[in-house]
Write a protein that binds this DNA or RNA. Structure first.
Lengths: 359, 359
DNA sequence: GTGAAAGCGCTAACAA
DNA sequence: TTGTTAGCGCTTTCAC
């Protein structure tokens, strides 16, 4: 690897002139010198060491990205968009960490980012508790959280960017209600994060407006160890099997996200029930997969592109102006109707009953 | 951020003693001094700067990871496992780059890795051409490729780790044949990579052994712009719609990977055909999703955990011993039978014909 | 067993 | 307009 010294020597100039070329300070450079340096850089195939530059300037073109698990397509999609945005906006690269929503792993990653000299991070975590971010922010780490779980009572120390979860819950419930459903449920893993609470609030508001608050329930599944796609879907699958055994079940299910909705559909089918004839199912996030499930999944779309753009922009801004007061940005969500929702059945069939699919 | 100087001052020792503590050279340290330094480190919350260390040593606990797109669950899953393995084996972190299988993006990422002082990279790319890796390897970058497209005629300059693609193709075809299928097809996007060629070879070998080589076809879809999940699935969906229009179609489809298989199933269903009653579908990779599709997707499982472990191990080894001769490691694949495969229908129904699902 | 000092490759005063 | 030089925070000889 050629160094700035090698370039200086070859071009017969001082290292500072080379440095000036590298940093585009052309105004204080003789065009001839500039050209000579460019030439030397080219012939040597010289690429400045970010490491040395960083040691001097304290800056590095790198962003931290913490997600629960890239195995969950929703986070994989988000990671892709964030990485692309970071590249597009500023040419930054992304240091990835899968956290499994584990406080300990999040803390360790934040520590490592700091020791790598990374000063900006986007964190996707719905842990309600953000206490463990404190040490990092105090050390000057600029943090932007997606769908973050800021306790409304705690003053936020970091930026939050999220879809309109209340609206999402409301849209989903309203859609089912408009189709004629009276007994509906919101389904999620155990544990109320702030974003889940908002979805529930929207769900319940819509139910109340329609006068069916009594028969709008919230179902919490037992907690999953990890948040890959398999685990969330499995949660849904298991719950669906349980629901299928009784006729006293909701006719419309709203899942906290698409993977869980996909699991629900799978469980219902395995139990011999049909979606949407027997039970309607709605997901949230509108991941790419929704178009390819059978039936295609009705879902509430979150504007990932816009949110990724906003998160990168915000963390860059905070990098430049560390003193910025924390903000909370909310992006509108929108219902995408596909084939998994329909009017409720006249009567709830029992699981495994006569009319099998494709009988 | 406290520096090593601060620690030295507080502990009343020289920086070299602190450095010795940091690097575990306890043998040349008075226990009392050691303890004093430890104490100072603790009270200051000191974390050594990887940047400074790296500038001195030339080493950094960071690995590059290039994948086509984390939006494709298969790569998201692989990225998760690789990142976890890197952490587990050596505490390394992962610098992520989505390449969209684009030669230009791959090259740029490799350049950036070098300038960040990263010396090891795992690259998931099935581009046949590996010419553009040359500059990076010549600069000393240790590369391990997953399912890589080494031209058998070109001497490999990097390590290759891959599932047994021939076996995968053979297993899939044999399964369909055993079920009674005589007209089968291998479906993939346009462009023959080395791994696809192996799958096809296995597919054709099985067909030949069964004496149905004449009716075992390879179908190439028009190329997709990007390799996210949506694009691959869409390719399958479009192709399925086309196949559904004719009765002169295969009764069993083997997709090059699961996302495409999922797209195929979706397209078949939309056309009014049933899987597996009308058409059997097999995927490859066995991503988590396979258990939750409707019907659950029969797939050829690749041992991602083992392969991730091997890739990380290998790149670490090559980091330590740059002179290592390139190797190619092949991992066995295995069929996972689920509900998307069954004996062929007596006669191929036309798309949109009488017997609709849930009629 | 401990410390002084050189230097990794770069940037940015400051001098010339 | 160009060059000299002092560090950024650490590791690592080499004296002591």
């Amino acid at each position: 690897m050629a160094t700035i010294q090698d370039v200086a020597r070859l071009a017969n100039v001082s290292v500072s002139s080379v440095s000036n070329v590298l940093n585009g300070r052309t105004e204080r450079l003789n065009p001839a010198t500039f050209e000579r340096v460019q030439e030397a850089i080219r012939t040597l195939g010289f690429r400045p060491s970010q490491v040395a530059r960083q040691l001097k300037t304290g800056q590095t073109p790198m962003l931290g990205l913490l997600v629960p698990s890239t195995a969950n397509p929703m986070y994989g999609q988000l990671a892709l968009k964030i990485e692309a945005e970071a590249q597009r906006q500023t040419g930054y690269r992304v240091l990835l960490g899968n956290t499994n929503r584990d406080r300990e792993q999040e803390s360790r990653m934040l520590d490592d980012l700091l020791s790598f000299g990374v000063h900006g991070v986007i964190i996707v975590s719905s842990l309600t508790d953000e206490q463990h971010f404190e040490p990092a922010t105090r050390q000057g780490l600029a943090m932007v959280s997606y769908d973050g779980g800021a306790d409304p009572n705690m003053p936020a120390r970091i930026d939050h960017i999220a879809p309109d979860n209340f609206q999402a819950g409301h849209l989903a419930a309203s859609h089912l209600i408009a189709l004629g459903h009276r007994h509906i449920a919101f389904v999620m893993p155990a544990g109320r994060t702030v974003s889940r609470a908002s979805k529930i609030a929207g769900f319940e508001a819509a139910a109340t407006e329609a006068g069916i608050a009594e028969t709008a329930e919230v179902i919490e599944c037992p907690p999953a160890a990890h948040y890959g796609d398999a685990e969330l879907a499995e949660l849904g699958q298991v719950l669906a099997a349980r629901l299928a055994r009784t006729t006293a079940r909701p006719t419309g299910l709203i899942a906290v996200n698409d993977m869980m909705a996909i699991g629900l559909m799978s469980g219902l089918h395995q139990a011999g029930l049909s979606v949407p004839a027997d039970v309607s199912v709605i997901g949230m996030d509108d991941i790419g997969m929704c178009s390819y499930t059978n039936p295609a999944l009705t879902s509430v779309a979150m504007p990932f592109g816009d949110m990724a753009e906003a998160m990168v922009r915000r963390v860059m801004l905070r990098l430049a102006q560390p003193g910025l007061a924390p903000i909370r940005l909310c992006f509108p969500s929108g219902l995408v109707v596909r084939q998994s929702t329909a009017p409720p059945p006249a009567v709830n069939r029992v699981a495994g009953a006569p009319t099998r699919r494709r009988g």
